[in-house]
């Protein structure tokens, strides 16, 4: 039931996106009524999506005919926002695809081209000027937060690694890993030699 609730929420979100960005409808017109199933390996769940021409429908536990089946981890799926990555991911074995490739590409494309005009939608409630101002301010705030986040990360890393000396530098970590690997190899060689000696 929880899964059904989650798919219902996903359907609601997709349909909200559809109402905010009507170009999605045109982009998906060629793949209407075709079913795309996405298997999320981390959750061991398969979610089926279909576009009926007016709205999206999302189902879990869908056992019927599927036009395209994708199986990947959630990290890999997030990379699908860029349609050009699709073939690379299939080649690397990170993504399994069965069925109609164009269907997967069509969905991948709508998310990569998604550009919702928030100011336009907001202007219905607060007017053109304030809506534009608000969206602009939010964009700037997002940019500033990103910058601040970068500075904060560098400062904290510096503080812990150089001043307080409670954390190690990534290079030290890499060196430690290399040493450990070497030690493991030595131990394996030694184990083999002991086994040979015991076998005599």
């Amino acid at each position: 039931m929880i899964n059904t609730l989650l798919t219902a929420t996903a359907e609601h979100i997709l349909n909200t996106i559809l109402s905010l960005e009507p170009s999605v409808q045109a982009s998906l017109s060629k793949v209407q009524h075709q079913v795309l199933a996405v298997e999320v390996r981390d959750w061991q769940q398969t979610i089926a999506v279909t576009f009926t021409g007016h709205s999206f429908m999302v189902f879990n536990n869908y056992q019927e005919h599927i036009d395209c089946h994708i199986s990947a981890s959630i990290d890999t799926l997030s990379q699908l926002k860029d349609p050009s990555q699709l073939t690379r991911l299939i080649r690397q074995g990170e993504l399994d695809l069965e069925g109609n490739l164009h269907l997967a590409q069509a969905y991948s494309q709508i998310f990569s081209e998604l550009d919702i005009d928030w100011a336009e939608h907001l202007s219905k409630y607060v007017g053109d000027g304030p809506a534009q101002l608000l969206v602009q301010q939010l964009r700037q705030a997002k940019q500033r937060t990103k910058q601040l986040d970068g500075v904060l990360k560098t400062t904290t890393a510096g503080l812990f690694q150089d001043e307080l000396k409670v954390a190690i530098h990534p290079l030290e970590m890499a060196q430690f890993k290399a040493h450990t690997r070497e030690l493991k190899q030595h131990a394996a060689v030694l184990e083999q030699r002991i086994n040979q000696l015991l076998a005599r």
């Binding site: 059904t4 798919t7 536990n61 869908y62």
Partner: peptide, 10 residues
């Protein structure tokens, strides 16, 4: 609504 969704999926 969830019961009916399940019926539609099947």
């Amino acid at each position: 609504r969830l019961w009916k969704r399940q019926a539609i999926a099947c």
